[in-house]
């Protein structure tokens, strides 16, 4: 299916995505390396394992979901669902008024 999203919308979305992703990856990467250092050398910091492992497990699940969704073409025509949803809503409302008559 051809996407009918204006180019400016696309550009804005991509720029926003990168503004969020890059600094965060940098921040998290740094903190993760620090965490590994503590884990190796300092037993006092060991308790931090619980929240970190919680987080890593949850994120792993979300990576799998993201990959699954991409492979199923969920983001192929990314703007389409916003229109189809409104069309079916209209149809449901129309049917309700018809039944009420």
């Amino acid at each position: 299916m051809q996407s009918n999203t204006p180019r400016s919308d696309w550009r804005f979305t991509v720029i926003l995505a990168f503004t969020i992703l890059l600094p965060c990856l940098y921040g998290f990467g740094g903190k993760f390396i620090e965490f590994i250092h503590i884990f190796r050398g300092n037993t006092d910091g060991m308790f931090a394992v619980t929240p970190i492992v919680n987080y890593l497990l949850a994120s792993l699940g979300f990576f799998c979901m993201l990959a699954w969704a991409t492979m199923r073409g969920m983001f192929h025509d990314i703007e389409a669902p916003k229109n189809t949803f409104l069309e079916t809503e209209e149809w449901l409302d129309h049917r309700e008024t018809e039944t009420a008559r």
């Binding site: 919308d9 979305t13 926003l16 969020i20 987080y55 949850a58 990314i78 916003k82 409104l86």
Partner: peptide, 21 residues
């Protein structure tokens, strides 16, 4: 329709990865 569905998806995945910590 909402202004940008693509941006709403960025929001969704952003929440998924950044909120928990």
């Amino acid at each position: 329709p909402i202004w940008s569905h693509g941006m709403s998806m960025v929001g969704f995945w952003g929440l998924a990865f950044f909120y928990p910590l």
